[in-house]
């Protein structure tokens, strides 16, 4: 390779490496802010902000959903398979909301350690399969989802 071209190649590699390192440092520094939600374990450990809105994510515990018959109030438990947080919400739930489903709620903790949600979003997983395959897989699913 021509020495001039070699120097240009070296300059480019240095530049890209330098920017990658800088970006890496910035992302590590802002790691907490880039997290979209806290897990119930984080919340129970007191890592979640107090008196400020934040998001909590996890699985809806099976059999925990209590819907009001007169209004849109709903109460359910959220778990990350370790700790559980009770969520209270009033409003319309997304289509994918169901027991065993991953969801993300935005809101605040109250004094009883319950999470008062303003917004509930469904998080769908990366699995795509036809219903009959899902039915056979149900037999082998984790313990927190009971039918």
């Amino acid at each position: 390779m021509h020495p001039l071209r070699k120097r240009r190649l070296f300059l480019i590699l240095t530049m890209v490496a330098g920017i990658a390192v800088a970006a890496g440092f910035a992302l590590v520094a802002f790691n907490e802010n880039l997290m979209f939600f806290f897990t119930p374990t984080d919340v129970q450990a007191g890592k979640a902000p107090q008196n400020r809105l934040f998001r909590i994510g996890g699985m809806v515990v099976n059999g925990s959903v209590k819907k009001s018959t007169t209004n849109t109030d709903v109460e359910f438990d959220l778990t990350d398979n370790e700790k559980v947080v009770t969520i209270k919400y009033s409003g319309i739930l997304p289509d994918l909301f169901r027991e065993g489903q991953g969801i993300i709620a935005k809101g605040k903790l109250n004094h009883n350690g319950e999470f008062i949600a303003e917004e509930v979003l469904a998080k769908h997983d990366e699995n795509y399969m036809p219903p009959e395959v899902a039915a056979t897989m149900k037999k082998k699913k984790p313990a927190y989802i009971k039918e």
Partner: peptide, 20 residues
């Protein structure tokens, strides 16, 4: 790397793709 609302990779990962 971070917790996101968007789900994880289905196809572009070292595991078997988690799609039928």
């Amino acid at each position: 790397w971070w917790s996101t609302l968007h789900q994880g990779p289905t196809v572009t990962k070292f595991d078997k793709p988690s799609i039928d």
